[in-house]
Design a protein around this nucleic acid. Structure first.
Length: 522
RNA sequence: CGGGAUGUGGCUCAGUUUGGCUAGAGCGCAGCGUUCGGGACGCUGAGGCCGGAGGUUCGAAUCCUCUCAUCCCGACCA
């Protein structure tokens, strides 16, 4: 593509609305534009990047044996009433009526639709197992969309659903997705980690979130430096060491209709999710002591964290894991990096197959509920997360697999015939070699071209200028390391092969600080 | 839904406290000239019913009321 003919609206300054770095850079680099809160238009370069991610996801899903489908975005209410989610799902579910006054909604997720598709066609255990996925726009009317593409209302998602006859098969399907996800995020060049997530009512280690590490992440992870343990701090169990003491602070909660007093050591934070699970209540909210005292007549429950010794009060693991706690698996040192959730694998069990009557007939002729799993990847969020993780003062540093173009070919002297001829020749040669190239042939000063190339973050810059060409060389620059080199203008492509290989392998061989991409399943 | 903030050319912002002549700057954009290896310089020019509605006033970007939008914090989040 020629820059002079391309629609790439870069900005010198970021709009004031943008707060986080990925949002600012997505706007400045001309990748996206905001239409309204949480809703974005993709410009040509942004779409290229989005499609790169989608294609890698597609390749790996296909490799894992999943089959691509495409499901409707507009869905009838009666499907959602079957699972009860028409009532349960809050305002995130955007509802409306069609011309016949029938209730409809925009799909925020597709368990209902896929389960209907499958139950209508599947009769026998012989037809199982299989896995269906789609890459599609989702709409969730989030209470508070924020951070640009990180939490939009409309966003691109890959969602996959597995269908098995029994638990063993479902575990295998889950495992296959887990492995596929590791391949996907590794291929994308991201520093990520699978972490144990709250598996809700299903139980067991059958929910993992895939986190891209970045300081702007919305989640905090407890990750062991010595073993593979990693968990969302919301669910990380505490390994208690040392004795109990009577010294404590009292914190108050309202659990459904009950008032709960939780005693923890001063300085500790109560994990309300643990309280909620311990009491098996539906909603737990923090309240003040005054509010607790005011709720006269309510049943009062007393609980103590394992570190606190109070006669007659039951102990439990009730606090958040914290700095200084040992790894609950190996006792090693814990780090607390922040992460952006880009993927989630989840074992659903029979939650939807039961409510929607999705059954198959087994060998003995009896009906059984299909065991399901669901697996999501926030495709558009991956683009934002990649930028959060890879940028500098100059702009984006795109990992090569999701860069809109791999090479920015800068013609510094468009009016110099010799330079122009050389640049055009290189452009043709790069295209012929299958290397995606954006040639900056604009009639602009060199500084403008350098700044734009850095801002958009093409992994490799090739610079053709009058001065260097007169010396018989063409310059190259690795956007990530900033390393520059000079390659011979004659026989450039041969020399470039080696240079390019070095840049690309530099990405692959990066060492991550907090963890490796090769952690294994628990 | 609570709390906070902001809406003035495409972008960043000044002007609002203390109402007063034709509403400003930088960047960007158009034309001309000089430039040309890290967002050049000069001259000329286009572009704004100051988010919207109502009100107060001789007079409103500025004060009052309502409203809309966007962002941040919180609650919420398969």
């Amino acid at each position: 593509m020629r820059f002079s003919e391309a629609f790439i609206p870069t900005l010198k300054e970021a709009p004031a609305d943008a707060e986080v770095v990925s949002h600012k850079l997505l706007l400045r680099a001309g990748l996206v534009r905001q239409l309204t809160s949480g809703v974005y238009s993709y410009m040509p370069l942004g779409l290229r990047s989005l499609n790169k991610v989608a294609n890698i996801v597609r390749e790996e899903m296909n490799r894992a044996g999943a089959q691509e489908v495409f499901l409707p975005m507009v869905q009838p209410a009666d499907l959602w009433q079957e699972t009860g989610r028409w009532e349960v799902y809050g305002k995130e579910l955007l509802r409306f009526k069609d011309r016949h006054d029938r209730d409809c909604c925009l799909g925020p997720t597709h368990e209902e639709v896929i389960t209907k598709v499958v139950r209508d066609e599947i009769k026998s255990y012989r037809q199982l197992p299989f896995n269906l996925y789609q890459i599609q726009t989702k709409f969730r009317d989030e209470i508070r969309p924020r951070f640009g593409l990180m939490r939009g209302r409309e966003f691109m998602m890959k969602d996959a659903y597995s269908f098995d006859r029994d638990d063993a098969g479902a575990s295998k399907s889950y495992q296959a997705m887990y492995e596929a996800y590791k391949r996907i995020f590794s291929r994308l060049g991201l520093n990520f980690r699978p972490v144990e997530a709250d598996s809700g009512s299903i139980g067991g280690n059958f929910s993992h979130e895939f986190m891209v590490l970045a300081s702007t992440g919305e989640d905090t992870i407890a990750a062991c430096a010595d073993c593979d343990f990693a968990s969302n701090i919301e669910r990380a169990k505490v390994m208690y060491k040392g004795g109990k003491s009577a010294e404590h602070a009292l914190l108050w909660f309202k659990a459904d209709e009950r008032i709960v007093a939780v005693a923890v050591r001063p300085g500790r934070e109560v994990n309300d999710i643990k309280v909620k699970n311990y009491l098996d209540s539906k909603v737990v909210a923090s309240i003040t002591e005054e509010q607790a005292k005011a709720a006269a007549g309510a049943e009062v429950v007393r609980l103590a964290d394992n570190e606190v010794d109070l006669p007659g009060v039951p102990n439990a693991d009730l606090r958040f894991i914290a700095e200084g706690d040992p790894c609950p698996v190996c006792g090693g040192k814990l780090n607390f990096p922040e992460g952006i959730e880009v993927g989630h694998v989840f074992k659903l069990g029979t939650k939807y197959s039961e409510s929607m009557k999705a059954c198959y007939t087994d060998e003995s002729g009896h009906d059984q509920f299909i065991i399901m799993g669901c697996y999501g990847i926030g495709v558009s969020r991956v683009v934002a997360a990649a930028i959060e993780q890879n940028h500098d003062d100059g702009g984006i540093i795109f990992p090569p697999p999701l860069a809109p173009y791999e090479v920015a070919l800068l013609n510094l002297d468009p009016k110099n015939e010799e330079v122009k001829t050389k640049t055009e020749a290189l452009y043709a040669a790069l295209n012929a070699a299958g290397i995606e190239t954006l040639m900056d042939d604009r009639d602009e000063r060199p500084g403008v071209k350098f700044k734009d190339a850095d801002l958009i973050g093409f992994p490799i810059q090739i610079v053709v200028g009058g001065k260097s060409l007169a010396r018989g060389v063409v310059e190259v620059k690795d956007r990530r390391t900033g390393e520059r080199g000079e390659l011979p203008a004659d026989g450039f492509m041969a020399a470039f092969d080696g240079w390019r290989e070095k840049v690309l392998s530099g990405w692959k061989n990066r060492r991550y600080n907090t963890f490796t991409a090769q952690s294994k399943t628990h």
